[in-house]
């Protein structure tokens, strides 16, 4: 993967959940080496976009196409998308009682490795590997022995998501509200982790409400989403403008 190569191309995407259309003709292009931020008011469809791209079964795509490195992404099962290098960091990661984080992370790692022809790790090798990545996120090794997300604080859950991104080394990472519910310290740690993973071979899509995350992870592009479409794309400064002026001036313009 070289910088500038198109990794993800979304064209005219329409999608609905429970019979209600949420995405209404969305276009987006991510190239290797880029960080994009999607902002927008509540209900504009930001989380829906994340879930549709990852293949959540509750969402139906009615029109449009998504090419992932030239492959028809929408034709792939969610697990196949992950194996091809797509990653979704969840806004609300689910708890999986009874399954230790260590075995979950190793299964995920080995499955994705197997999918891309990489080397799988046995529990001891994986333990060394994962501990190295955990240092990046200032995570206590005790995390490994706890059940997946069970009883984790909001900040711990978010760090666990970024840890998974660090392990799976995706080509396209979609991070849905990676900053919500974080205190200042946790925000710093999560942002540092994301910045460290940003590379020439991958692209990151930050879905966020607030521009504070963007102080730490500086995006190349900021998109404003409203009513299921991207209504404005601009440089990093657009986020600052949104912070001071709100969304009304844009959404009003869209309606006019």
């Amino acid at each position: 993967m070289s910088a500038g190569e198109v990794l993800l191309e979304v064209r005219g995407l329409h999608a609905s959940v429970a019979g209600v259309e949420i995405l209404k003709g969305l276009d987006l292009r991510l190239c290797a080496g880029e960080v994009h931020a999607i902002m927008g008011p509540n209900g504009s469809g930001k989380s829906t976009l994340s879930k549709v791209l990852a293949g959540h079964p509750s969402y139906t795509v009615s029109a449009g196409e998504v090419a992932f490195r030239g492959i028809d992404l929408l034709a792939l099962e969610p697990e196949e998308r992950a194996r091809q290098g797509l990653f979704l960091g969840f806004q609300y990661p689910v708890e999986i009682p009874g399954v230790s984080n260590a075995s979950f992370l190793r299964l995920a790692y080995n499955t994705v490795q197997a999918g891309r022809g990489g080397e799988e790790l046995d529990p001891l090798e994986f333990d060394d590997f994962v501990r190295g990545r955990m240092q990046l996120l200032e995570m206590d090794p005790g995390f490994l022995d706890r059940d997946v997300n069970e009883g984790f604080s909001g900040g711990e859950k978010k760090r666990n998501e970024i840890l998974q991104m660090a392990l799976l080394d995706p080509l396209v990472a979609i991070l849905d509200e990676a900053d919500s519910g974080l205190d200042i310290d946790a925000l710093r740690i999560v942002s540092k982790g994301i910045s460290a993973l940003r590379a020439q071979h991958n692209a990151v899509l930050l879905v966020t409400h607030y521009q504070r995350l963007l102080d730490h992870v500086v995006p190349d592009f900021v998109h404003v989403m409203s009513e299921g479409r991207i209504i404005r794309t601009g440089p990093r400064e657009l986020a600052l403008e949104l912070e001071s002026r709100g969304y009304d001036w844009l959404t009003g313009a869209a309606a006019a």
């Binding site: 990852a54 293949g55 959540h56 079964p57 509750s58 099962e77 969610p78 697990e79 998308r81 992950a82 194996r83 990653f87 979704l88 969840f90 990661p93 689910v94 999986i96 009682p97 009874g98 399954v99 230790s100 075995s103 979950f104 299964l107 995920a108 499955t111 994705v112 999918g115 059940d147 998974q164 799976l168």
Partner: peptide, 24 residues
């Protein structure tokens, strides 16, 4: 669905996910 989707989004198919959850 949400648990299985979580596994799927990490590349793990439903059968393996269920087996892991049940064994746990």
């Amino acid at each position: 669905e949400e648990q299985l989707f979580y596994f799927a989004s990490r590349g793990v198919g439903a059968e393996e996910a269920i087996s892991m959850i049940i064994n746990g």
